[in-house]
């Protein structure tokens, strides 16, 4: 008898007994659960660094939840943005916690993405047949940077403003396409309400949707190709 399988299967039986039975009778969910969850055991060669993709995903889900909560009180208007962020921090009960989680989650997420990429890079895991997942991974990394870049403008502080001024100067200096890129980012000659509105739209709609899409692609590829073998 496979000793290892005993645990998960017992757990499955209990879950099915408790609540999944309703679903199981209609959708025969037990089979799917067994195949996808309960008999799928992690290879033993995985270590702490193998966890960083999952940790990043977890933080991303936290960002979604705290981000939605922030959106309830945040006002994306140059006159009110800073005031609303101050109100979230100081007046709304537990607003400091929600904002703090979102702020630190954002910083941590960049760190964990980088550790995850480092593991893939130095482990040579990006090699065939997993090249396409390195590509989706890099795209996800760029989306994370995009989140940080657009989110940083939202509180509309001096730091936000000047960081955006400086960070749009850089693409503006590209030959030929620079000026066009810069005015596309800013929506005008300088950082204004137009910029805040587009950054907000990117931050809460476009980037989350794109990230979800790429995450699905990322995970499906892993499911299809399996976890890479030991180094």
């Amino acid at each position: 008898m496979d000793e290892l399988k005993l645990g998960p299967i017992t757990l499955r039986n209990r879950l099915v007994l408790k609540g999944f039975e309703i679903l199981d009778r209609r959708f025969e969910i037990k089979e799917i659960l067994d195949e996808e969850v309960f008999t799928k055991l992690a290879p033993t060669h995985l270590g702490i660094f193998s966890c960083f993709g999952g940790i990043t995903f977890f933080i991303f889900l936290m960002q979604i939840m705290t981000g939605l909560l922030l959106m309830i009180y945040y006002v994306p208007d140059t006159q009110s943005a800073h005031k609303s962020v101050v109100a979230i921090t100081n007046d709304i009960p537990f607003g400091w916690a929600v904002r703090g989680l979102h702020f630190w989650g954002a910083n941590l997420m960049v760190l964990t993405v980088m550790i995850h990429m480092g593991k893939i890079y130095f482990g040579g895991i990006y090699k065939a047949p997993r090249e396409m997942n390195w590509v989706t991974g890099v795209a996800l990394f760029l989306l994370t940077m995009g989140f940080s870049f657009t989110g940083y403008l939202l509180p509309w502080t001096q730091l936000s403003y000047w960081a955006t001024v400086i960070a749009t100067e850089a693409p503006g200096a590209m030959p030929v396409v620079g000026p066009l890129t810069k005015s596309l980012m800013l929506g005008g000659p300088d950082v204004s309400q137009v910029t805040l509105s587009r950054f907000f739209t990117l931050h809460v709609m476009v980037l989350p949707a794109a990230t979800f899409g790429l995450l699905i692609a990322h995970f499906l590829q892993i499911r299809r190709q399996g976890i890479s073998g030991p180094m």
């Binding site: 909560l69 007046d91 709304i92 009960p93 537990f94 607003g95 916690a97 929600v98």
Partner: peptide, 8 residues
């Protein structure tokens, strides 16, 4: 905290 946040 969630309830307090939503019912300020």
């Amino acid at each position: 905290p969630l309830a307090r946040y939503l019912l300020p």
